[in-house]
């Protein structure tokens, strides 16, 4: 059984919602990524979404856009993201790592090269923001061949007909985009999200994680009532940005923030 499945089964048995932090690899420093990943796990993260930086991250709000810019300025590349996953796996063989990003770097690396390298590094799933299922057949088939999950987004605008397509191609879990907007937006409507997730449950069988706009423990807790996992991205990166560049204080800040959210859940 793969790590994603195992993790959500265990969470389900414990009746615990999953905590899914997102960081951009290479931010704030190239050398900080693997230590941050371990810190996240120590503080209670169940799954890690690791952002593959891209020059044109169209679905991101300013906080994650800047994280991508910093990472690229630091010299981060797709290959180095995969190297980080491999390094993380040397000390952690249980926490699922999802590679999240945009398609162009993968087009340039080549789908098969990427799938092969990601599997070898020890990644568990891939979420490509600008690849809806209509364009995802080729990459998803290769990911499947290398035992990697294809995670697809579900949005408030996704029609019931299209849910069928997402269900057909998606594996691992579904990522529900909680609002019409970019990452880090502020107008999250909890009641609406709850209703939507309840509706999705009638159509989808995989665990549902909710993200975009969850920026504090209270919102995370409310969303966790209905979701199998909550994704925290912009709020975490914002904390890291203000923690400064000293690695010890950075890791302490990361642990404290994630720990607070874990406690609230």
């Amino acid at each position: 059984m793969n790590r994603i499945k195992q993790t959500f089964l265990a969470l389900h048995e414990q009746k615990k919602p999953g905590l899914v932090p997102y960081i951009t690899a290479g931010d704030p420093q190239v050398s900080s990524t693997v230590p941050i990943m371990h810190a996240l796990v120590e503080a209670g993260a169940d799954v890690i979404e690791l952002g593959m930086p891209f020059s044109d991250p169209m679905a991101e709000g300013p906080v994650i856009q800047h994280a991508h810019e910093r990472a690229l300025a630091n010299g981060m590349t797709l290959q180095r993201v995969l190297d980080d996953v491999a390094m993380f796996r040397q000390d952690n063989d249980t926490t699922p790592v999802i590679l999240m990003g945009y398609l162009n770097p993968i087009e340039i690396m080549g789908y098969e090269n990427f799938a092969k390298a990601a599997a070898k590094a020890g990644a568990d799933g891939v979420l490509i923001v600008d690849m809806p299922p209509e364009e995802g057949d080729a990459l998803s088939a290769l990911l499947r061949q290398y035992q990697l999950d294809s995670i697809y987004l579900v949005a408030p605008t996704t029609s019931v007909e299209r849910l069928a397509r997402i269900k057909e191609l998606g594996t691992g879990y579904h990522y529900y985009v909680s609002l019409k907007g970019v990452t880090g937006s502020k107008q999250l409507n909890i009641e609406e999200v709850s209703n939507q997730v309840a509706m999705l449950r009638q159509h989808l069988k995989l665990p549902i994680c909710v993200g975009f706009g969850i920026n504090n423990a209270q919102t995370a807790k409310a969303i966790a009532q209905v979701a199998d996992g909550v994704v925290i991205g912009s709020a975490l990166i914002d904390k890291m940005r203000t923690a400064g560049t000293d690695q010890t204080s950075l890791l302490a800040e990361v642990k404290q923030f994630i720990h607070t959210i874990r406690e609230a859940l």
Binding site: E135, V177, K180
Partner: peptide, 13 residues
């Protein structure tokens, strides 16, 4: 093709 985030698939349709 249509390489966009999920939210835009509906308005594009």
């Amino acid at each position: 093709g249509q390489f966009v985030a999920e939210t835009l698939m509906k308005p594009l349709a």
